[in-house]
Design a protein around this nucleic acid. Structure first.
Lengths: 251, 251
DNA sequence: CGAATAGTGTCTCTCAGACATTATATG
DNA sequence: CATATAATGTCTGAGAGACACTATTCG
C-alpha cells in the first residue's frame, strides 16, 4: 500500500476503514518439558474448528485489555496446565497479515519451561484434545512424536505459522542452553538432582551428545566453583549400582 | 483479574467491555548508526505533545491492518529517514498495561542498523524535532549525548518505557556482535572497508576495546579464510601515512 | 630520518574434545 | 568377583589475551 499514490479521498477512505479494524493480539505458549525417558516434549492441542480443523496447534489466547503480555502468558499457561510460577520467556512476535485467515491476529509467542514430571495437560480448563509430543531435532528440521497415539507430525502438519514458532523456540533453546541457566528450569527438582540428569536436559535441548567427563568438568566450573550449586550428603539409590551424588541449586 | 471468582453477569459485563477495547499495536524503531567519529548513535525524536511532552522518544507508529510487522517497521524507517533496504531485526514486544496512559498500546520494537554516513533524519516526513545521540555504554547503564546541542540524556529523560527498549537493544547488539555479522551492517561501504574501521564498530557495539593484532587474527579466521571477504588491490590514501588495505564483502 | 599508522610474531593460559582409567555399589 | 554405573585423570589442539616487534608511507 503506497500512500503517496493515493488521492486524499482514497486515503481518508482507507483511514476510516482501518480505524475500527484493529488487529487482535494473542499470546501463544510453547510449553516444553521433559518426559520420563528424559526426552524434550512440547504440548500441542488439536484444533476442533476451522481453519486447520484437525491439525495440531500451539495453545494460546487473546490478551485481555487489562493484563500485560506476561500476565496473559501466565494465565494461558495456568488455564492449559494449571501450573503457576513457571519460567516464562518472550520468544518472538508473529504478525504476518494472512497468518490467520479469519482476522488480523498478531501473536506474541512465549516459551514456558515446565520442570520434569509436572506437566499434566488434562488439568487444563478447556475441553480440548491436548497431547505432549516428543521433539526430535534434526539439523534444519524437526519431528513431533506421540508414542501412545502412534502419531508422528512433520512441520506441515501444524496449524497456522506454528511451524515457524517451533523453529524459533528450538533455536532459542539451542542458543541459550550453553550461556544461560535455562536447562535448570527443566529439572524435576532444583533442590535435588544428579549431574547426569542435568546432562540429559542439555542433550535434549541441543540435540547433541556430551562427553560425561567434559560435562562434569564444565558443570563444576560453571556452578559449583561459583557457589551456585552445592553437593548434598544424600545419594541416589535408584539402581543397584554405584549411587550418584545429589546436588542442590542455591537460592 | 480472576475469572473464577466472578459471577456470570460480571464475566459477561467484562467481556462486553473489552470486546470493543482492543489494544493498539505499534512498531517502535531503534535506529542505530555510526557517526563520523566512529561512535554509535541512536535516533530519537522530541515529543511535542502530552504525555512526556518535551522528553525524547524512540520513533514509531501504528501497524496498519494490511501490513506485516516487518513492513510496518520498514515503512516507519522510510518515513523517518527516507532509507530503504536497511537491516531490520525484531527486538522485543512491550505490552505493560500502563506503558502509555492514553490507551492500551502494545509496541513491537525493531532494531535498524544504518550504514555509517547514511543517516539523514532531516529527510523524514514528519515535522518533528529529531536528533541522533551518541550512545555511551557503561556497565548496567547508558547515557545519550548530542554534542551539537550540548545535551546529555540519562535513562530517566526518556519517554514511556523507552529506557527499557534501549537496554534491550544494546543488550542484543552486545550479544550478537561476536557470533553474527551485524557489525558489517554498520559499515559505510561493505564493498570497501578497512579492518580497523570494522574494529571500531565492534568496539562501539560492545563498549570495549579490542587488541589490534587479535582482532585481525579473528577477522582473518572468520571472514577471509572462509571466503566471505576478499582483499582489494586498492589501498586507502586518506592520511599521509602507511596506507591500509581495503576489503570487500562477497555476495 | 622521525613520526604515525598498518600489520605481524609469539608466548601463555584457558578450555573443549577425546578417551583411558579408577571408584563404588549390588547380586 | 563380575558388572554396571559414577566419577576422575590426562593428552592435545584451538583460540583468546597480552605485548613486543616489523613494515610502509610522508614530510
Amino acid at each position: 500500500m503506497n500512500y503517496e499514490e493515493m488521492t486524499e479521498e482514497e486515503y481518508l477512505e482507507h483511514c476510516k476503514a482501518i480505524a475500527f479494524a484493529r488487529p487482535c493480539v494473542t499470546v501463544d505458549m510453547l510449553i516444553f518439558s521433559m518426559n520420563k525417558e528424559q526426552q524434550l516434549e512440547l504440548l500441542l492441542i488439536k484444533r476442533g474448528g476451522h481453519p486447520f480443523k484437525g491439525k495440531w496447534a500451539i495453545p494460546g489466547g487473546f490478551v485481555e485489555i487489562d493484563e500485560s503480555l506476561e500476565e496473559a502468558a501466565a494465565r494461558e499457561l495456568k488455564e492449559e496446565t494449571n501450573l503457576e510460577g513457571i519460567y516464562l520467556e518472550q520468544l518472538y512476535t508473529f504478525g504476518d497479515v494472512d497468518r490467520d485467515k479469519r482476522a488480523r491476529v498478531i501473536s506474541v509467542a512465549y516459551l514456558a519451561l515446565v520442570p520434569a514430571g509436572n506437566l499434566d495437560f488434562s488439568a487444563g480448563d478447556d475441553a480440548v484434545d491436548a497431547c505432549s509430543f516428543v521433539v526430535r531435532q534434526e539439523k534444519g528440521s524437526f519431528t513431533l512424536c506421540a508414542k501412545d497415539r502412534n502419531l508422528v507430525l512433520t512441520e506441515d502438519d501444524l496449524a497456522f505459522d506454528h511451524k515457524d514458532m517451533i523453529f524459533k523456540g528450538l533455536e532459542r533453546l539451542n542458543g541459550k542452553v550453553t550461556y544461560s541457566d535455562i536447562a535448570l528450569e527443566l529439572l524435576r527438582d532444583k533442590e535435588k538432582f544428579t549431574i547426569y540428569e542435568l546432562q540429559t536436559i542439555y542433550e535434549a535441548l541441543t540435540g547433541e551428545d556430551f562427553d560425561v567427563a567434559n560435562f562434569r568438568r564444565s558443570f563444576k566450573k560453571k556452578f559449583i566453583d561459583i557457589g551456585r550449586v552445592e553437593k548434598l550428603e544424600e545419594k541416589s539409590v535408584d539402581f543397584s549400582r554405584k549411587p550418584s551424588s545429589y546436588y542442590r541449586l542455591i537460592k
